[in-house]
Design a protein around this nucleic acid. Structure first.
Length: 428
RNA sequence: GCCCCCAUGGUGUAGCGGUUAGCACGCGAGGUUUUCAACCUCGUAGGAGGGGUUCGAGUCCCCUUGGGGGUACCA
């Protein structure tokens, strides 16, 4: 598919460092990256930091951090737009000298014709025309001489040899201004592609109000970078009618701007959760344990991780679900009252004995032994399993009981069962 | 105000003039089962409204409505 037209494709991601990287920005970065990788082009990272107030080193680092976490590596940069001030000034002077711009109360404005229109060729939206009558002579340099956004972007894209500008649709209206600057400079505009914006579940523009809306929040919430990548790739793009899960290779292979949709998409965390759960279950025990251990700062989580794996949707689900396998925790009183009813003590004692005298404390033998207890008492399985569950987990909710017992080990299981029995023995 | 973009179920989307409008999330009901946020099955719900064009329109055109973006010496 890599036609000769795309030979030497150069794309860029140019965030302004105003804080965390939003998923909208993350998606823009992803699409640029996918295309660069697919076409063998270059992915350039440029920081639009001409607004010195908001552009702090911390904010820049946050963006780089998010990109690294998503494993979107850039080939050039990060370049600072602010550091190119001299070059911007040079081009402003040139526009001034050529008569394309003029001074107005100290600032510099670009001359925009009264008649005619500027047509933007957009890969996603087709030809979009903007009547010049609706665009006034806009300011390209402040009275202190510094360049403004549209000038800086046009000059930088030109100097960096950017061939394809892929960015959010919120930039579409500014595109004719940038194209006019480029033409005034004697250059041709690059290929444009304006991506549909991302909205929150209320239909409004995505913001902090919409829960985990930034990459760092997603990371903290326990999502996997590969799941996030897959999910956001699908926000505004799809390979075909039914493909949902795609590896990074498949994404690179199948991505195309032609299939990007035009209408805004709503970020819905529910679907991400579901998808993340699917990714989580694909991980090997080792991989899963590694990620949990890194996240929780603990070691030796593999047994517990395997036991909890099938029920987790995010890494954060692990501790509430299976933390009891790692350390003791207080018993949920409601669960205790619900389960430790008439006869529970006898059944728990039988369970204790069955487990205490097992030859091998393995999953299969544990299950056999516990099911024997069920048969002996002629009760429903849960009459036996739930008291045991509360005894070892302190909750009526846990991973599979046999797996949990096996993961806990004989000594600890018996200790906890004994603790429960002691409480049952003492008068309330 | 002016300019621009968008419009398939609650959500993400498929469709590229003729389909019982497909897939997925969610939701609902069953099932599996030792609990459960896991899993399986079935189900639920849709082309904003109005005009055209056409033998035939979600698909093409126009209008209205709705949503979004821009219009800064912000980016």
């Amino acid at each position: 598919m890599a036609g000769p037209d795309n030979e030497g494709m150069r794309v860029r991601f140019a965030p302004s460092p105003t804080g965390a990287l939003h998923i909208g920005g993350a998606r823009t970065a992803l699409y640029n990256w996918l295309l660069a990788r697919k076409e063998g082009g270059a992915f350039v990272l440029r920081i639009e930091d001409t607004d010195r107030e908001r552009s702090t080193p911390e904010n820049v680092e946050q963006i780089l951090d998010a990109l690294r976490w998503l494993e979107l590596d850039w080939d050039e940069g990060p370049l600072s737009q602010a550091e190119r001030a001299a070059r911007h000034r040079e081009q402003i002077d040139r526009l001034l000298a050529d008569g394309h711009a003029y001074e107005d109360e100290g600032a510099v404005r670009l001359r925009v014709p009264d008649e005619g229109e500027t047509v933007v060729e957009d890969v996603i939206r087709g030809e979009v025309s903007f009547p010049h009558a609706s665009i006034d002579d806009f300011v390209i340099a402040r009275s202190d001489g510094s360049a403004l956004y549209n000038l800086a972007v046009a000059v930088d894209d030109l100097d960096m040899g950017i061939t394809h500008v892929i960015r959010g649709a919120d930039h579409l209206s500014n595109t004719p201004r940038q194209a006019m600057i480029l033409r005034a400079l004697g250059a041709s505009p690059p290929v444009y592609a304006h991506l549909p914006l991302l909205h929150g579940t209320d239909g409004k523009k995505l913001s902090k109000r919409h829960g985990a809306a930034s990459v760092q929040q997603l990371r903290e919430a326990g999502y996997l970078p590969e799941a996030v990548r897959n999910y956001i790739a699908l926000l505004g793009w799809g390979l075909d009618a039914s493909t949902t899960f795609m590896t990074t290779e498949q994404l690179i292979d199948g991505f195309s701007l032609e299939r990007v949709s035009k209408s805004p998409a709503v970020f819905e965390e529910q679907k991400l959760r579901w998808m993340n759960g699917r990714y989580l279950r694909e991980l090997s025990p080792k991989e899963l344990a590694d990620r949990l251990e890194a996240r929780l700062g603990r070691d030796g989580l593999e047994h517990a991780a395997v036991v909890a794996q099938e029920k987790m949707q995010t890494l954060s689900d692990f501790w509430p679900l299976a933390g009891f396998l790692v350390e003791r925790r207080p018993t949920d009183e409601e669960a205790w009252q619900k389960v430790m009813v008439e006869g529970a003590r006898e059944r728990l004692e039988a369970v204790r004995d069955a487990l205490a005298y097992l030859d091998s404390f393995r999953l299969e033998s544990i299950e056999t032994a516990l099911r024997e207890v069920v048969e002996r008492f002629e009760v429903k399985p849960k009459e036996v399993f739930q008291p045991l569950r509360v005894a070892i987990a302190g909750s009526t909710i846990s991973p599979g009981i046999f797996e949990s017992v096996a993961a806990l080990g004989r000594e600890e299981t018996l200790a906890r069962v004994d603790g429960a029995l002691a409480r049952l023995a003492s008068p309330a």
